[in-house]
């Protein structure tokens, strides 16, 4: 069957490859974002879908154009631009002018991602950086949060903004009850379902948790970063509120904590690869978020804290480098030898 001139393929081992692909991983993330996307549309109406479409479309277009202009292979097929677009839309209020979405996409894809070498090379999370750039540039448009479609109540601020006005040393439970009764603070149930003010993708805790569970089951993300991140915030809030559970619950479900912890802080390119590094990274994010929320001038700090920890990521990775198999510390080796000598002497 095989003749003398037949050519055989030669390559380095291993000769079988696992089923995982980059586009498969990205597709899993997209699936995991779907519940939150649906919840966003349900809560804020059709315009939420429009914002998502514009963000995704412009992210993919910028990805395509920048690769073309830089004369590099077109990587639109890996779906990473779609993920970035969705995440960016999730971090915007539904009333955002659409041209701002395009600017955000430009910052995310062209400046943060492609100028640094494309997927895996960016030093900061593209969607988060884009959100911060928009927040700084268009502060009023970015902090104008319309009420959910189904709610008639007149709510003046996001839950976190309301909470930040509370006196931490005062009677927190009483203040929360007062605001809940006046409909100035959504009930726990509404918080969980996402019927509240906020960015498109961050409001529905239930949808975010479903998506997060999917990612964990599929092995796309590890629990280390979300656990240490949310855990740190929870502990910090409990201590700061003198173990007030209601206050802590609002802090955990409010703002972009769940979205940030499960979908943004776990971004592969900008978080440590090793377990110890992931835990340090998560705790750092948690501390920064808590400090900004309670003691900073801003009601929300998830974006800033993730961005700051992104920048610290290479340092964390270096400091927490795991010992490889059979690694022997020079000092320990000496000590062991001395002990062995002593043992032999005795």
């Amino acid at each position: 069957m095989m003749n003398e001139t037949a050519k055989l393929t030669v390559s380095a081992s291993p000769h079988v490859k696992g089923p995982a692909t980059v586009s498969g991983v990205m597709f899993d993330v997209i699936i995991a974002l779907c519940p939150a996307a649906i919840a966003g549309i349900a809560v804020f109406g059709f315009r939420a879908a429009l914002v998502m479409a514009v963000c995704v479309g412009s992210c993919v277009a910028f990805e395509y154009l920048s690769r073309k202009i830089m004369k590099k292979s077109v990587t639109v097929g890996d779906l990473s631009a779609v993920v970035t677009g969705l995440l960016l839309a999730f971090n915007l209020p539904v009333s955002i002018p659409l041209w701002m979405c395009v600017i955000g996409s430009f910052v995310a894809i062209v400046i943060v991602k492609q100028l640094f070498g494309g997927v895996g090379q960016n030093f900061a999370n593209p969607a988060i950086t884009a959100r911060i750039v928009l927040l700084v540039s268009f502060a009023s448009a970015m902090t104008h949060f319309p009420e959910p479609k189904s709610v008639d109540a007149i709510v003046s601020a996001t839950p976190l903004a309301t909470l930040s006005g509370f006196d931490l040393s005062g009677d927190l439970t009483g203040q929360i009850h007062l605001y809940q009764a006046a409909d100035k603070l959504p009930s726990y149930f509404r918080m969980f379902l996402g019927v509240r003010q906020g960015c498109i993708g961050e409001v529905c805790a239930a949808a975010l948790l479903i998506g997060a569970a999917y990612l964990l089951i599929r092995g796309v993300i590890k629990i280390a970063i979300p656990f240490s991140y949310i855990g740190t915030v929870a502990v910090f809030m409990l201590l700061a509120s003198r173990f007030n559970l209601a206050f802590t619950a609002y802090q955990l479900m409010g703002g972009g904590l769940l979205l940030g912890a499960f979908f943004m802080a776990t971004d592969y390119a900008t978080s440590p690869v090793n377990l110890k590094g992931k835990i340090v990274f998560g705790i750092g994010c948690g501390l920064l978020t808590s400090v900004i929320r309670l003691y900073g001038s801003l009601p929300e700090g998830v974006s800033y804290s993730i961005l700051l920890m992104n920048i610290a990521c290479p340092l964390i990775e270096k400091a927490t480098a795991p010992a490889y198999f059979g690694f022997v510390k020079k000092k320990k080796e000496k000590k062991a030898k001395e002990q062995a000598k002593e043992g032999a002497g005795a």
């Binding site: 995982a20 997927v119 895996g120 690869v273 090793n274 198999f325």
Partner: peptide, 21 residues
């Protein structure tokens, strides 16, 4: 394709090495 730094290589390595680095 380009490395996305997902860390699967590090998780798979029986010797605990970090192939990405």
């Amino acid at each position: 394709r380009d490395c996305i730094r997902c860390g699967r290589c590090h998780e798979a390595c029986p010797m605990g090495l970090i192939p990405t680095q």
